[in-house]
């Protein structure tokens, strides 16, 4: 049962990784990269590592996305003047 869930999530993660590299829009690529971390933190629970799952959920999917968006904001406001 858990194996089926792991395989499903793994396929989505690989697709999200490819998508993150080949999407033209950078924000969309960031969202896609966030999905990888998001599902990785579910997988850590299957590996019996809840500490790592918590850290990955907090940092990998949340803060990394936000740091990327802050950098994009800087680039966007530079580009406009």
């Amino acid at each position: 049962m858990s194996l089926i869930i792991i395989i499903f999530l793994g396929i989505i993660m690989i697709a999200a990784a490819v998508l993150a590299l080949y999407l033209k829009n950078l924000v969309a690529a960031i969202i896609s990269a966030g999905v990888i971390s998001l599902l990785a933190s579910v997988l850590y629970l299957f590996l019996a590592a809840p500490d790592v799952a918590m850290t990955e959920a907090a940092i990998g999917s949340g803060l990394t996305t936000i740091v990327f968006l802050l950098a994009f904001n800087k680039i966007r406001s530079d580009r406009e003047d």
Binding site: A17, A20, L21, L26, A29, I30, A33, I36, S37, A40, L43, Y44, L47, A48, A49, P50, V52, E56, G60, T64, F68, A71, F72
Partner: peptide, 29 residues
């Protein structure tokens, strides 16, 4: 930026590999 995204993907994959090495079947956290 795409290179940095590639770096973070490598990061996630590496962490998955390391944690899965520590796992032993049938045991808990």
């Amino acid at each position: 930026i795409k290179m940095i995204i590639g770096f973070s993907i490598i990061d996630t994959g590496l962490h998955l590999v390391i944690v899965s090495i520590g796992f032993i079947k049938g045991r808990t956290a």
